[in-house]
Design a protein around this nucleic acid. Structure first.
Lengths: 347, 347
DNA sequence: TTTAGCACTCAAAAACAATGAGTGCTAATA
DNA sequence: TATTAGCACTCATTGTTTTTGAGTGCTAAA
């Protein structure tokens, strides 16, 4: 349908537009293209490309700009991912170099590294498995009726929360509660634990304890924390650089979207079922705020510790070949780092 | 030096400019002022005010705008703080109504409430005392060589950090270390503890333990966390509303300033020695990014639990009388809430 | 199929005019 | 002496017109 030269023209338009941000005209293309044809010939090709909806004019006598459809075609057929440079690889590895005590620290760090590397905004979603189990639950009395609740999961995650006991709670009651929890629930997947907490566990506790209410709340709370899907954003401020000059209202909307801790981030990122690097842009993106942006996602797997996802928000005119290659390298480095982290808990 | 009518004119210019954001002309003033004089008379007064540098023209034939000096004069001599409305008071009290397990939760909440109430950006700095003492230090083993370090201070603050033991650490060593720490340091002000941690404590530990290095790191870390001055920002996004349309670079600078967790926030807020509500604006503010903004600070004291501070960043043309009154009410409500919180630890 | 040539389009910049809110000054007035 | 009416003047803002130039589509020749 499209000739080889026309594809070359499309590719070049995307390259130049990405570089300069300006519509690309036939004369410019004539000097930039590796082949030697006149500007009139290129104009004919451009007319064909426009016919297909792959490029657009900003006004009747302007140069051309790639359309969403054009980018889509480019991404599906033409783009050649560029390897990450040694310098980039080194930056990634150095970023992951330190010692981490929690998965979340690694995940947060991954968002920082990626945003630094790209100058875009990165969102990192840690690996998640439905098979995480409850490894233990403690209450550490700290004096003054303050107690710290600590929940440990099979993947080495630790959640804690401080709370204050009601005045009338007996300390043997606490110990009993702890014993019951640990006897009954340890070794069970977290979602099952949550289930039982909603069904038979309360009765069980009430059988032995005088007042189990506050206790249940706390346990439920920490459990929810442990099961919650957390994500980390790196390079928040970068949005301001690439998001159109002065579109402050859009900026604000975007930040609310990103900062919304309890909002469903998956709605934004999409499912992370398949491996590989995916790009969605413009009208392909669901919340309308993103309509002039581009979202690159890459999922990775950490053995049987589940799949995570890392995403990049940037302008539509991204250097895709570079970014796709970089993200591909990045996700495998991140997976490597997480695997090494988990190896402590696998013996 | 200035006549009564001139002051009235200044006050009215500030009121109108705050309301409309537009330069105020002599005709407008004529209709708005409570007294009846001609626009020419007002023009003469305006000339006098301009002579003093209290108001400015934006161009040679424009209306007048209050200068920084004009605002300063207004704040020092003319402003009449307005009482917080019952509705505002109710909002504050409702915001502080819930149960809090940590001081920091209250402080963070205070920033949220204040920013909601004002639509500006609020910074809240919790009460800080040099007399906080170390109440205890624990290490809770969690399995897999993971340990949670917990530090409790005399004001009920609890800091914790997760870490992993090196493979060769004996558990009796840990207990010994804990015992030494608690015997030697509990009851001592945090800064003294930090001091001793830098001087004689290491030797002490090394005397009894084979390897105390990682252990010291952890303790030092948690101690630093406990002693750190933390602040909370509410209504971050509001900056975008009142900071000039489209001055994205300034926005970005401001956010870096505010988000900088380890930066010295006191440099921004100034000392909180005196009580009362203070306003600084324009060129009176030190980081230049703030030069077209206004910063209202209010400090409060929570008995012998030290002094805290709450601040508001907004546009220079704020409704000062309202804001000053509101902040005054707010700080006393916050102090009340904190006092009630601390009362648990005072018996 | 490609290309030279040319008329045509239109955003952007520049030049110009009109409007009107607001000023400073002067001279008359209370 | 303080106030005011009157008037010429200034200048940001808005609207209009012109000019420019990059870029296009089309036609006819190579």
């Amino acid at each position: 349908m499209l000739t080889k030269r026309q594809l070359l023209v499309l590719k070049e338009i995307i390259r130049l537009f990405t570089e300069t941000g300006q519509p690309v005209g036939s004369k410019t293309l004539m000097t930039e293209l590796p082949i030697h044809v006149s500007s009139a010939t290129i104009r004919n090709d451009m007319a064909a490309l426009e016919e297909q909806g792959l490029i657009n004019k900003t006004h009747s006598s302007s140069g051309r700009v790639p359309s969403t459809k054009g980018y889509r075609y480019y991404l599906d057929n033409l783009v050649e991912p560029a390897e990450a440079t040694p310098r980039e690889l080194a930056a990634i590895q150095q970023g992951f170099g330190g010692h981490f005590y929690k998965i979340d620290e690694i995940v947060a760090q991954s968002a920082r590294i990626l945003s630094n590397l790209t100058s875009y905004t990165a969102i990192s979603l840690g690996p998640e498995v439905s098979t995480i189990k409850l490894n233990g639950f403690r209450l550490v009395p700290l004096g003054n009726r303050q107690v710290m609740a600590i929940l440990v999961t099979s993947n080495g995650n630790v959640e804690n929360q401080l709370f204050t006991l009601p005045p009338n709670v007996a300390s043997e009651d606490i110990e009993k509660a702890i014993r019951i929890i640990n006897d009954q629930l340890v070794g069970m997947p977290l979602n099952q634990v949550a289930n039982r907490l909603a069904t038979d566990v309360p009765a069980l506790l009430f059988k032995y304890l005088s007042s189990a209410d506050g206790f249940l709340d706390i346990f439920g709370n920490v459990l929810r924390q442990a099961a919650a899907e957390r994500f980390y954003v790196g390079g928040r401020l970068n949005l301001m650089d690439f998001l159109g000059d002065a579109d402050v209202p859009q900026l604000k909307q975007l930040y609310s979207l990103i900062d919304d801790e309890n909002g469903d981030i998956n709605k934004l990122l999409g499912p992370n079922d398949e491996g590989g690097v995916h790009v969605r842009l413009g009208s392909e993106l669901t919340p309308d705020v993103l309509s002039n942006l581009s979202l690159i996602t890459a999922s990775y797997s950490v053995g049987d510790h589940g799949r995570g996802m890392i995403a990049l928000i940037g302008p539509t005119q991204m250097p895709y070949s570079k970014m796709i290659g970089l993200l591909d390298t990045f996700r495998s480095e991140l997976a490597k780092r997480l695997t090494s982290y988990y190896s402590h808990f696998d013996q």
